[in-house]
Amino acid sequence: MWQKWFSVKGKSLFSIAFSLHRLTGVVLTIYLCMHLAYLTSIRMGKEVFESFIATTVTPQFLIFDILLVLAGIYHGVNGLRLILHEFGLTYESRKSILYVSVAIVLIVWLIASYRMYTFVMGV
């Protein structure tokens, strides 16, 4: 059933882009719920909040953060591509636009990951 959204055997890059958009959409929604729950700690005072930060803003969590940011950037950039096409523009050049989107995702992700790395390591 729902597995069919993620079956990409024999499909083009466009279908893979769709599968990833759906996957990242769901991942981000789950993260949103976790994020809202996490923010409760701010209302519980300085100690609770800082102990949360001390456990999550750490090198061990960095890898999850970086993957999450990849999901976010992919969903955002691919989302802009979809908005363009769904509003009726430029489907004729959809192949080149897809390639450009993937390139933008990778570049932005590398920059963001580097910045997060230095941020967590306190460089």
């Binding site: 499909k11 083009s12 466009f14 279908s15 882009a17 769709f18 958009h21 759906r22 979809l82 096409h85 769904e86 509003f87 009726g88 489907y91 959809r94």
Partner: peptide, 26 residues
């Protein structure tokens, strides 16, 4: 439709059904 656009990739007549769907949806 979520613009997976696979229809346009496989259409043997290359008529770009995905484009028609976007146009009529808009």
């Amino acid at each position: 439709c979520h613009f997976a656009a696979e229809c346009s990739e496989v259409c043997p007549k290359q008529i770009d059904p995905a484009k028609a769907v976007q146009k009529i949806r808009f």
